[in-house]
């Protein structure tokens, strides 16, 4: 009898919390559009990388090619006009995406790599370890953010560490990554403190898991949605930080980035050359907006506390 019941009744296949969250996410059309925009920026950055590696001469990646007279106003051939050397501002804007995405991605990985393990260890072990880690991040977070990044960027700039020369862009993402792990560390620590009292942790101990296994195999997967949400929102601030550093002249010196473009525009604006500024702002505007909306949607769909049926 049971057999026949089992044959007729087929339960739906297992759905993980993760997949369930993704399903919720893609039910929102706005989030889909934003994801598309974000992926477009990523694809552009990746494409420029590929072109550079294989030395492909694809028109819009050749930012240093003269396309017209100096300071040509926007027209049909050059939709954002040209800069002082007659290079296309539109191409410079596209190239800026590569710098921004690279910096933001590398900075994210660095700060996840530092913040998540530190937060998890502090939250799990508490005691002295916790106090030391909390002391370090409280100290770091008490220094104004931009000043701290600036200090790191100045120190790291053009230094050679273990034979690796830190060029402009490397020192920028190192500076951002090394200073921005505080937020995620604090979040993960709080969440781990909450989760380690759950019974599944005690159960894991009762069948012989070691502490490191409990932290990295049992607790982290349970709190990792926080990392994803936090970084979808923080990615924007990394892009902004890169722009600020470039604007202040601490970024990539000889290649265009959005920050450098805005820096150039500072002088040009007085002469009525506004297109450099507009191009950079438009590029920043769309990725910021898309990341913000997408990050909010991601939080709504992944955070179980905000879940509404």
């Amino acid at each position: 009898m049971i057999d026949s019941v089992q044959k007729t009744f087929k339960a739906p296949k297992g759905v993980s919390l993760w997949r369930d969250g993704m399903r919720r996410l893609f039910r929102r059309p706005l989030a889909d559009v934003c994801l598309f925009v974000i992926l477009l920026y990523f694809a552009l950055a990746a494409f420029i990388y590929i072109c550079e590696i294989f030395h492909w001469q694809v028109g819009f990646t050749l930012w240093s090619q003269e396309v017209g007279p100096s300071y040509q106003a926007p027209c049909l051939q050059n939709i954002f006009g040209t800069d002082i050397f007659g290079n296309s501002v539109f191409r410079r804007m596209l190239y800026g995406a590569k710098i921004s995405i690279t910096v933001a991605l590398c900075a994210s990985f660095i700060s996840i790599g530092i913040g998540v393990p530190l937060g998890a260890i502090a939250g799990y072990f508490r005691g002295v370890v916790d106090e030391i880690i909390v002391w370090i991040y409280s100290t770091l977070s008490s220094i104004p953010y931009i000043l701290l990044i600036l200090a790191f960027a100045v120190v790291l700039r053009d230094k050679t560490i273990y034979g690796i020369k830190l060029t402009g862009i490397t020192s920028v993402y190192l500076a951002i990554g090394l200073t921005s792990w505080v937020g995620i560390c604090r979040l993960i620590r709080g969440e781990v403190i909450k989760h380690k009292e759950r019974e599944y942790v005690l159960a894991a101990k009762s069948y012989g898991c070691s502490d490191s296994r409990i932290i990295f195999r049992h607790l982290l997967p349970n709190v990792f949605h926080i990392v994803i949400i936090d970084f979808s929102l923080r990615f924007v601030s990394f892009i902004h930080a890169e722009i600020i550093l470039s604007f202040l002249g601490l970024g990539e010196a000889d290649r265009p980035s959005w920050g450098a473009m805005i820096n150039d525009a500072r002088i040009e604006l007085a002469r009525g050359v506004w297109w450099q500024m507009v191009a950079a702002t438009v590029a920043v505007f769309f990725i910021s907006l898309a990341l913000n909306i997408f990050g909010d949607a991601l939080r709504d769909s992944l955070d179980p506390k905000l879940r509404v049926q």
């Binding site: 919390l17 759950r198 019974e199 005690l202 159960a203 049992h218 997967p221």
Partner: peptide, 12 residues
Amino acid sequence: FQEPMTSLNPVF
């Protein structure tokens, strides 16, 4: 344990 609802890790 007493609470089977919470003694299993929800993500695995």
